[in-house]
Design a protein around this nucleic acid. Sequence first.
DNA 1: CTGTATCCCGATCGATACTG
DNA 2: CAGTATCGATCGGGATACAG
Lengths: 131, 131
Amino acid sequence: MNATAAGPPHGPDDACRTREVLDIVGDKWSLLVVRHLSQGPHRFTELKRGIDGISQRMLTVTLRALERDGILTRTVRAVMPPHVSYALTPMGRTLRTAVLPLLEWSTTHLAHIDAARADYDARPDTPGNGL
Amino acid sequence: MNATAAGPPHGPDDACRTREVLDIVGDKWSLLVVRHLSQGPHRFTELKRGIDGISQRMLTVTLRALERDGILTRTVRAVMPPHVSYALTPMGRTLRTAVLPLLEWSTTHLAHIDAARADYDARPDTPGNGL
DNA sequence: CTGTATCCCGATCGATACTG
DNA sequence: CAGTATCGATCGGGATACAG
């Protein structure tokens, strides 16, 4: 083992898993919903108000997908007006835990990335900048 | 601490970060490129062959974005034929590390998710299945 | 070998209106 | 309150052709 080849090896179907994870959490809203529910169950309207910019439609679509995947549960109380509560399943909570390092990474490195972008955009001898 | 309210609290701008991380790694190919480069530097054609299904265009686009973000470096050797090598930066390697738990989570839970989906699709009393 | 340019299709997603 | 239905704009991304 030398210095140039770092990191653990990976099997050929790790790629498939990478894809499937992104299908589940890689979209615009899923992680935001999971994050919100990590603090306890919430109702539809609470989520809509809590997640900035999400439309009624996308909240419904996202919740359905996460429910189907067993990430959260949907509990309907048949009263008037309707009362629907969403809560993370145990698996949903493990997902939250698994995503946490990535979120912490972003907290640590986002400023660095902004700097890298500014630097890249300032360089004239770079593809797309006109050399 | 009780059972209903689990998980750490979060600030209001965690949402922004969640978004920005997804902008960087949430697309179809970025993580696959990072994963591939975690085993050492690679040339354009090697990456193209190694990442199944990626088009020339998307490989270029993805590499440019990751380079701009400081995740990887692009090294050109001015020979004929051209020789371009891509390698993870130190920050790129920390990203790889931060994503690892999520990938391990998928390895552990993907079968469970498939089961949850089959179960959900089999239930007749569920939205979209015709109640 | 390592790209760039163009076209085009399907998926995504926001806005809006309507319903039990 | 908690959705569903529909429409339209936008965008990712694949195919292909061309270039240094």
